[in-house]
Structure formats: C-alpha cells, structure tokens
C-alpha cells in the first residue's frame, strides 16, 4: 500500500525543458500562473493554449502522464464550476426550482474550469521535468535575496533535500513496523475511518521515535563532516545559466507581454 506513493513525479527524459536551469522553470511557471488570470477573451485563451501545448510538446512528456495529475482535482473543479454556474447573477438562460443559470454564469464556469486545468497542467509540467533536488537548488539560489531579510534560505533548502532523502527510508520503516504489528494481531484494515485512524497511533509512536533517532544521528554525521550552515560553503554542482536559459527567459517574457497587450487592447 505504501509503496505506491511516488514523490516528486519526475518523468526522466532528455528534452530541452528537462535541461533548463531550474530557476528559469520556477520563474516561467510563476509568470505562466499569473498570466492565466489576466485574459478575459478568446484571443488570450488561444495564446495560453498554444503556449502550453508547445511546452508539453517540447518536454516530450506523454500527454496521458500529464492528465493523471488532473484526476486529483476533478472534485475541486466540479465544485468551482457549479458554484460559478448557479450563483452568478446576470441574464437568465434556464430556470428550474431554485436554480438559475445565467449567461455570465456559464461563461465564468467555463473560464474558471479552463484556468484550473491549465494551472495544474502547467505546474505539473514543471515538477515532471525537474528533479526534486534541482528544484530545491533552484529555490535556494532564486530566493537567495531573502537572506538579507534574515530568512534562512540555505537551511530551508537543506531541510527540504534531507526530507526528500529520508522519505523512502521512513516509508520502508513504516511498512516494517506495520508488518511487525500485524504479526502480533494489529488490525489496520477494518472499521470506519475513526477506527482506522485510531489503529494508526501505535504505528506513529515508534515511527516518530525512530525518526528522531535518525535525525540525531544525521546531525552528528553532518557536524563530523564540518557542516556549519551555508556560510563559506561551495557547491559541487553550482547553477550556471546557459544560452538556452536566456532564450527560455525570452520566450516566457514575450508570452507574458503578449497576454498583457491582449488584455489592454482587445
């Protein structure tokens, strides 16, 4: 059951998008997300569609793989669409019992649904083409300026990458503890949700104790290897911009500018 959890749904391939600097991808995704909320008409919508489709094509991630991410938000999608559909005041189209469907309602429901779908597709394109480690590296570098506001950027990035390293270990350990307890008659399967949650308590206690022990060991091992925070630290794999990264910045900015122009003049 626990083995099925996959983290950082990275799809290995060798496309241009995979090789881009993670900072470009982070910035690009941010601009893309903002851009989704700028357009109001079909032209903007068309530009966003072309951009997204082009990116997916270049990334060589199978479309089926991307759509998987959408399954999780189906319910959210339905709820927002329904709220928009029934609760937007305007010109009546259909009316039955207490429900009123308006022209504006239909329009905003469709727009909202499209935006949400594009949002998920765009952000999962980033996580599918970037390994979790690259992502942490990118964030550490891109948010480096926050250091001046006394935000421990390096420490947060280090914590994230250590968490990623230990997730599979802890998953395995949970599995082991579960089996040990099942062997002694514990029951994790039957009963309602509350009963199941209660059955988890004896699982969590040993797991937490072991996690703390591991944390302690790791802290000692890191100290023994001269770790003393981000100060004076060099990088084995420093992030350096290539020509393709500059080009990618260009593409993203042109796309964003285009949408702004469309929003203002059309």
């Amino acid at each position: 059951m626990l083995r099925e959890i996959t983290l950082g749904q990275y799809y290995p391939s060798d496309s241009v998008i995979h090789r881009l600097d993670p900072r470009v991808k982070l910035f690009g995704t941010l601009l893309y997300v903002i851009s989704l909320f700028t357009f109001r008409n079909v032209v903007g919508f068309a530009i966003a569609t072309v951009f997204l489709a082009a990116m997916i094509a270049i990334s060589r991630v199978p479309f089926g793989f991307m759509v998987k991410g959408l399954r999780m938000i189906v319910i959210v999608l339905l709820i927002t669409a329904l709220f928009n559909l029934f609760l937007t005041p305007g010109k009546l189209v259909v009316e039955f019992w207490i429900f009123h469907i308006t022209e504006e309602g239909i329009a905003s429901a469709v727009k909202m649904a499209v935006r949400l779908i594009y949002l998920i597709l765009g952000t999962s394109l980033m996580t599918l083409t970037t390994t979790p480690n690259q992502l942490t590296d990118g964030m550490e570098k891109a948010l480096g300026f926050l250091r001046f506001l006394k935000v421990p950027v390096h420490e947060i990035a280090m914590m994230m990458s250590i968490a990623l390293r230990f997730i599979p270990i802890l998953v395995e350990e949970t599995d082991k503890i579960m089996k040990a307890q099942i062997a002694r008659g514990a029951d994790f399967e039957t009963g309602n949700i509350f009963k199941k949650a209660k059955a988890m308590v004896p699982l969590l206690v040993p797991l937490f104790i072991s996690a703390f022990r591991r944390a302690n060991d790791l802290a000692l091992a890191m100290e023994a290897r001269c770790y003393h925070g981000g100060e004076g630290r060099t990088k084995m794999k420093p992030l350096r911009y290539q020509k393709r990264d500059a080009a990618a910045y260009g593409v993203v900015i042109v796309y964003f500018a285009l949408l702004i122009v469309v929003r203002i003049w059309l």
Binding site: N133, R165, A221, R225, H228, G232, R233, T234, M236
Partner: peptide, 22 residues
C-alpha cells in the same frame, strides 16, 4: 542510512568538501 545526506552517491561524497569551501 543515517550518515548519508544527499540523494545521489556523488553528491553525498561532495558534501564534505562543499562544507569546507573547496
């Protein structure tokens, strides 16, 4: 398990030298 910091072998080996500013 409790002394390997990075998720890739070579990055873990590089962790010490990174710390001492090589």
């Amino acid at each position: 398990d409790n002394q390997i910091v990075a998720s890739v072998v070579e990055e873990d080996v590089g962790f010490g030298p990174e710390n001492i500013g090589v």
